[in-house]
Amino acid sequence: MKTVFTTSMCTHVWAQQVQENGRGPNRSLYFEGPTLYSYGYHYVLGHFFLSPSGRRYVVINSERYSNTTAKHVSKARSAVHGHDVNVLVAPVDRQLAWDLTAGNYEAAWDAIRRGRDHRIVTYRHGMDSKQSDAIIATVQFAESWGLALEREDIRPAEDSEAGKRYAEAVAYRRKMEERRAKSEASRNDMSPEAVAKRKRDYERRNAALLRKHNDWFAEQVEELNHWRRYENVSKRDRVQLDYKTRRKLEDMHEKLGHAPLPTALRRKDEYSEVETSRGAWVPWRDAVRLYQFATMVKEGRLSSAPDRMRCGLFTLNKVHPNGDVQVGCHFLTYHEMHHLAHKFGVAVIEPQTQQMEV
């Protein structure tokens, strides 16, 4: 059984929960059973567990210690996307993961609650926007845990020191929101001249954002094409965007009704595997059979592919009538699969299901 993978593939295999252990190429990322670690047992990156009523959860650690660990967290969140599991983002450590695996829910909740109260009371005295946001976020993380563990006592006790600090933080945030609302109202001059000026300013900003969106999307498409051809693109040649601007462009892309960029596929002549643009690998033989099943469904020769069919380490979730497929967290368009199949001369014939694990 293969246990050494690329970093992205390691998170995908962990998300599938089809084998007991695995690791990345340099041992910085590895998993043992339901738990994914980054750089050692001290940092639990992700953990699968069941709630007291049997609901399936995966917790992704919200605490980030380094840039590399932050990248690991991003890959893990991407890998669990699309799976039938409730995703929880909150602080987690190894002892807590052990308690959840063993079903020690009381001990787990007690540790979460004590950690929450300790963090709140150790924040520096005084109150500002950063302080109030940090305290409220700490309580919200604990509330997420409480809901997952089906608790009712998810808020700090009002008469406790932590409860008083939390109430102070909530009151401060409410005061700031009222102040911002008052300031906004004072700027809402409804005279015809002011309305016309705001409309012109909005249209000018929207036009500039649309131009930036078109440049950004064209660059994304070009990068994907370079990736398909195994060509590297220098970071200096890319449009540099901050996080806020990138989110604005992604929101505009969705509002314009454009579909997100598809998962791309590539394969070198001498390789026996297909790579996805999300960092996963599947055997070429399985990829060919998946394409053949999708073609038969698209042409109406099959109503659907076999249930729970395996494609490498992944499970086929669904084949749509138009030939698009959902495999694990990957959505593959038929056009993308057909393009790769045509490039390597794959014949559209009836696949041999007995040769593929089902």
Rank of each mutant, 00 (worst) to 15 (best):
G82L: 03
A70M: 13
E32K: 08
S132G: 03
S272F: 06
T276W: 02
T263Q: 00
E193Y: 04
D93T: 00
G146P: 02
H42W: 06
A207G: 00
D251F: 10
A76H: 06
A157L: 09
T295M: 08
Y291K: 05
A15L: 07
A142T: 09
Q131I: 01
L313R: 11
V282H: 01
W98K: 04
G115H: 07
R23N: 11
L241E: 05
E32I: 03
E184C: 07
M309Q: 12
G24K: 03
E177R: 13
R247C: 07
E158L: 10
P262E: 11
S183R: 14
H335R: 15
R64G: 02
T122K: 10
L316K: 01
R198Q: 10
M190Q: 15
V13M: 02
S78N: 13
R165H: 09
F31H: 11
V274Y: 07
D237L: 07
V87T: 14
Y172V: 04
P283C: 05
W109A: 02
T69D: 07
A169L: 02
H339L: 12
K175M: 01
L241G: 02
I120L: 01
R119W: 05
Y202W: 15
L241N: 06
W284H: 06
V13F: 05
R179K: 15
N188T: 02
W98P: 00
S304Q: 15
Q354C: 04
L340D: 11
N214E: 15
E143N: 14
N206S: 14
H320R: 12
E184P: 04
K268N: 10
R267D: 08
H258V: 02
Y57N: 04
R119T: 09
E168P: 00
V139W: 04
V73I: 13
A185N: 10
R165N: 10
E177P: 00
V327S: 00
K255E: 12
Q220C: 09
F331W: 11
V44T: 07
C329L: 03
Q220Y: 02
L147N: 13
M356A: 05
Y65F: 07
R174K: 10
A90K: 07
F293L: 14
R301Y: 10
V274F: 09
Y39Q: 13
V319M: 05
E152H: 09
F141M: 05
A97S: 14
Q19R: 13
K343M: 14
L290M: 09
Y291I: 04
S304T: 14
R124P: 02
R180I: 08
